[in-house]
Design a protein around this nucleic acid. Structure first.
Lengths: 185, 185
DNA sequence: CGTAGTGAACCGAACGATCGGTACACTACC
DNA sequence: GGTAGTGTACCGATCGTTCGGTTCACTACG
């Protein structure tokens, strides 16, 4: 293996850092170029279809991250409460206690949302499914479990929006804190 | 009153329609010009500071709308449950049952969010305050009321994001439906 | 061995289009 | 006449994208 100063994952993570902060429309190629340390044409070498490809890659990368760090642990070992708490602390770190906004929300709201419809729906669905399965595991009826799982994701996304809008991350902390009780009854 | 083909409110509403769909960064001046039927120079006549002024005006217009249509009714007559239900049906209409996204969220997430920090915080705060006051009115302890009010706004914003992400407005409908129970216990 | 060739990774300069914004003359109505 | 509102033409900057070209590790072949 050659030195590989710029592993693809590292590039994508830097793209994500920009997009999650300023959104798809707000992320210019030159900004993405600066953030990655790659020239514009080098970016096009890695992502032949341009900006859309970059965001797509970010979305795929995020999906893998979520599967490994959130969805799988939800299905893993430990009591349901423990597993929910693990998810919460992962979320708290990923969103920097509410200071960072959500890439998913950025792409849902951007002007190019139509182009990301499928992967976005996939990610949200998997998230809800993983949570619902956990609740079923905890002895909660399937229908109730789904409703609560959906509600949990709703709250997380909403808390991030509100934290940004109020300029106060307290609402995100409070929302995360009361998640276990809301989910598990 | 002269014919006034383009009353200011009508202009601002059309600006809002664009911004709420594609966000601040995605809303180009030419798109805003087309949407309002006004030439660029006319737009700059009405909003001397350009795009930022337009979004600012949209935000002020929205604040007035929310005060008149949401916050005041929350403090008005009728049982607390009735007042909550009135808010919900207004929200359902305003967001077209979940098909339209939230202007506030768009401005919170856009790259120019710093410029709208104050009015955004104001609106969210007023909303939470109005809801909390209603709950106190319904006999709920102040601290609990605030937490629940905050949670309600969190859910509304989150449900709009998720409705867009899933491409299914069902989640918005379900969230609104269970709001009265969540708020009033 | 050497050396010609290959392809992946990279780059800055430049493209046409559009960006947000301005200048100014004109019209409509007081 | 004055002034609010408008249309046209235009500005420099930046947009996303493409171009021409360089570097360099590696392979094929004499």
């Amino acid at each position: 293996m050659p030195p590989a100063i710029h592993p693809r994952d590292e590039i994508i993570q830097r793209l994500m850092r920009v997009i999650r902060r300023v959104g798809y429309d707000g992320a210019s190629i030159s900004a993405l170029s600066k953030a990655t340390g790659l020239g514009k044409s080098s970016l096009y070498h890695h992502f032949p279809n341009g900006k859309h490809d970059m965001a797509r890659a970010v979305l795929e990368h995020l999906a893998e991250f979520l599967r490994a760090q959130l969805f799988e642990p939800l299905r893993g070992a430990g009591t349901p409460k423990r597993r929910v708490e693990a998810m919460i602390s992962t979320l708290d770190a990923f969103y920097a206690e509410g200071h960072e906004s959500c890439v998913l929300a950025q792409l849902v709201l951007g002007s190019a949302r139509a182009g990301f419809h499928a992967p976005l729906r996939m990610i949200f669905s998997e998230w809800i499914d993983a949570l619902a399965d956990l609740l079923v595991d905890a002895g909660i009826a399937r229908a109730t479990a789904r409703r609560r799982a959906e509600d949990a994701v709703v709250r997380i996304e909403g808390a991030l929006v509100l934290a940004g809008g109020l300029g106060d991350v307290g609402v995100f902390a409070r929302t995360l804190k009361q998640l276990p009780a809301t989910l598990l009854g």
